[in-house]
Design a protein around this nucleic acid. Sequence first.
RNA 1: GGUCUCGUAGUUCAACGGAUAGAAUAAGCGUUUCCUAAACGUUUGAUCCAGGUUCGAUUCCUGGCGAGACCA
Length: 633
Amino acid sequence: MEQHIHQALLEAAPQLFGCTITEEHIQFQQTRKDVEGDLTLVVFPFVKLLRCSPQEAGEKIKTWIEAHITGVSHCVAINGFLNIVFTNDYWLKQLNQIQQTPMYGFAEPASKPTVMVEYASPNTNKPLHLGHLRNIFLGASVAEILKAVGHKVVRTQVINDRGIHICKSMLAWEKFSPVNDKGERETPVNTGLKGDKLVGKYYVEFDKALQKEAKEIIANWLSGNFSDTPEAIKDAVLNFQKAKDGKDEKAQAAIDDKIKELAKNQTAILQEAKDMLVRWEARDPQVYLLWTTMNGWVYEGFDATYSQMGVSFDKLYYESDTFLLGKDQVMEGLKRGVFYQKSDGSVWIDLSADGLDEKLVLRSDGTAVYMTQDIGTAIDRFKDFPDLHGMVYTVGNEQDYHFKVLFLILQKLGYAWAKNCFHLSYGMVDLPSGKMKSREGTVVDADDLMEEVIDKAKTMTQERGHLEGLSNLEREQLYTQIGLGGLKYYLLKVDPKKRMLFNPEESIDLTGNTGPFLQYTHARICTLLEKANYASETLIETAPLQAEEKEIIKQLALFESTLNEAAKVYSPALLANYTYELVKLYNTFYQSVKIVIEPNHEVRQLRLALSASVKQVLAQSLNLLGVEAPTRM
RNA sequence: GGUCUCGUAGUUCAACGGAUAGAAUAAGCGUUUCCUAAACGUUUGAUCCAGGUUCGAUUCCUGGCGAGACCA
């Protein structure tokens, strides 16, 4: 309808205004709730054109629309806005249409190009935490949304499975794991620990041992004992010590940190880890076996977590396979003059013309940096999937600069698809106590959190739910649906770009703007329709329509444009807010009228059709958010 | 030091440059002979500061103040 009026106005402009108008003149918006109208045309843009008051301009357009647009009942011009009211017939037709379209609002599957969505880039020595949950729920939801608007989607994750940090947990396990009476060190099987948790534990063990040794070294240094310390380090330490004189507390602490860094580098245990990395890179069989074994434990653990989260992937990338990629492309780009080489042999790109800095893409010793790897990986993916059109990287906003540079480099290397790469940047999740810090033990573990929300859902559901007739298994599933639904909705309803606060208390609330609130409404409609034995049939188009009923149809009609907008800006939050609005309207309606027990057949049929349509759209959008829609609760 | 992001009720979040800045929560009051009260209705409360652009600014620009991130 909006399109229709838009087009009609463009065509009629010469006759109506005496001149042609452009797209920009025609601005539609949703009518405010407290005034009459179904669609609002902003009149201000026409005022200059017509050289008259906003009120006069409004009246003029009003007369024209009322006379020429079918489906419009009448218009009201106030304060520079023209509120257009559609006929009841129009809205009933809309409802009929929604009801008869099974995947209403969705585009034809695979009608748009393939897009790869990357989310979750876990590190194999740290169990998943709250930050990962936001990342993964966000990426998974965006993937679903892109599918819904017609894209083919490849969901992927990159696993950070190599490097010095992996060697740390491997080494700590070899050194510190107790041996049981069967002569085995700790494994997930003999400890009952989840694989990722076990490995994470040894990563922490390594750090403890490192700190301890560093402390001893510093103590030696402070007492003037510099045996075993290289001269250069000794000088550096002494210089730092001198620099502390006369500085304030904060500056002194910063210097102490630098000394600590030096001490850590002198520890035997870190040296051992570095040696192990060298052996790993040389494919030492013993180290390789340990690496594959421990990574295997971690993957089992991650799989369990993903399964609980209800997410999956189509393709996995391992850094151990891709960390050597990109060097060739850099050398190639160097030949073509995209990059330049400094006298020490390192390779750089100068992006100052684009408002950015100079950026290192290959070290002087020929080793790769993250950027090198990401260049290579991106190119590699387009080789893996020849019909790939674009990529979405779901990565935290601390990498904003990195991705800006990456996309620019890919563009300069001549890859046309670079413009279809998007960094889905999301804000950090803070806790009421501040930032999550692993060192201070304030990290919220993903498994623990999910267990907690499911537990809470269980308690609450047992208290007030309608569980009769459900098997134990069905009940457990329901608790999971509610708990996780609440958690997902809580994390997704906020604009992804924004930093958000996670309050453990609120995430499992059941009232207000929450997942369970939406689920509850869905469940209630399900039983309602069941009781009514509802079968959809074409509605009579002249039935009376109450204000509450019309509001719901209006909101239903907005689903498609909301979905498209959510896909365009990669924001599940838009969909979440839309759905919440729909549910609120429906609940108001539900409380104020009779539905199943309505005696008038025509009215009853209309209200049931309305309920069925709300249920359908509600279930669809919950699904897009990764939230399940229980049929009772 | 340079670059980027963000500042909205007590709190957590909304608002293509548009009308009287919306919700939720917390607190009070009210609604079950009737379809699930995890619901509904109702009362109280906010745009960091100073300029500028505009018919109109929470939104855009400049300068402060405050929070965070990245780069050396």
